[in-house]
């Protein structure tokens, strides 16, 4: 979140992907930096036990949302 917010503030469109168990932490960090509207995509927790193929599949599912935020100005 911290890095994404700073990249965004530097003028480079960004989006952060975060698992849903970390929603309070992500929102807390955005609030701390005065960026409550910073675009964050939440995905189902956990991902740490996934193998490469499962992780790729999750990334493909999220890709349209990422593109939507980056080029759609959402």
């Amino acid at each position: 979140m911290h890095d994404g917010i700073h990249v965004e503030n530097a003028g480079i469109p960004s989006v952060t992907i975060c698992t849903d168990r970390f929603i309070p932490t992500a929102k807390g960090m955005a609030k701390m930096w005065g960026s409550e509207d910073y675009p964050t995509i939440f995905t189902q927790h956990p991902i740490e036990n996934m193998n490469r193929e499962q992780l790729r599949q999750r990334a493909e599912e999220l890709a349209p949302q990422v593109v939507g935020v980056l080029v759609g100005g959402q």
Partner: peptide, 10 residues
């Protein structure tokens, strides 16, 4: 330092 359990202390 805001290391609150459940918030920034995970």
């Amino acid at each position: 330092c805001a290391a609150i359990p459940g918030l920034f202390d995970r």
